[in-house]
């Protein structure tokens, strides 16, 4: 590695007294003092959340109100701190979405373990799990910090859907085999 020795310029007398430097420093801080404040009054004022922000993971429904999660458990598998726990279940054959066959019976995310990495969202083949803009979670007990399925859907709400994969599938089923 090549390097260059830089001669340190000897301090002038004024500099050695510190006084001009101190005054210029005080000028800086005084300017800062009369400027508008940069911090937010947090709980009342909140920062704008940019798109793609990774907040609390939530479960979402499609615009038709169908729960998108099919409990494939890929998120449970990929979750580095093992915060997700899914109990898979079967959709009863008489349900409207029976053609989807599978849905989570229980879905728990332990927010004490979650590290907000977003791998669950990335891995989800159904785009059912989203890290949305809630960033502050608190609770009095450990149990309170485990979001169950009901809470996850409350947090998640409904997001727009680009695919309607299962609705298309149902339509195809109703139309029958195109050969016939």
């Amino acid at each position: 590695m090549s390097f260059k020795t830089v001669e340190r310029r000897p301090l002038s007398l004024a500099e050695r007294t510190y006084v001009p430097q101190i005054l210029s420093g005080m000028k800086t801080t005084f300017k800062k003092m009369v400027k508008p404040k940069e911090t937010l009054n947090y709980p009342e004022a909140r920062p704008p959340i940019p798109p793609g922000y990774r907040g609390v993971p939530t479960l979402v429904k499609d615009p038709n109100g169908r729960e998108k999660c099919v409990s494939c458990q890929l998120c449970e598998f990929v979750c580095p701190p093992k915060a997700i726990r899914i109990t898979p279940g079967e959709i009863p054959p008489d349900a409207e979405t029976a053609h989807v066959e599978k849905a989570p019976e229980e879905f728990e995310i332990d927010m004490l373990r979650c590290i907000y990495c977003g791998l669950c969202q990335e891995v989800c083949p159904e785009e059912a799990i989203w890290l949305q803009n809630v960033f502050s979670v608190s609770g009095y007990t450990r149990e309170e910090m485990v979001n169950d399925k009901k809470r996850l859907y409350e947090l998640g709400g409904t997001l727009p859907d680009d695919h309607y994969k299962w609705d298309k599938k149902k339509a195809a089923e109703e139309a029958g085999n195109p050969h016939h």
């Binding site: 801080t29 800062k32 003092m33 009369v34 400027k35 404040k37 940069e38 911090t39 009054n41």
Partner: peptide, 12 residues
Amino acid sequence: VSAWIQGRPGPS
């Protein structure tokens, strides 16, 4: 004063 210098509202 410290808050103002540091760009904060300070205790309020």
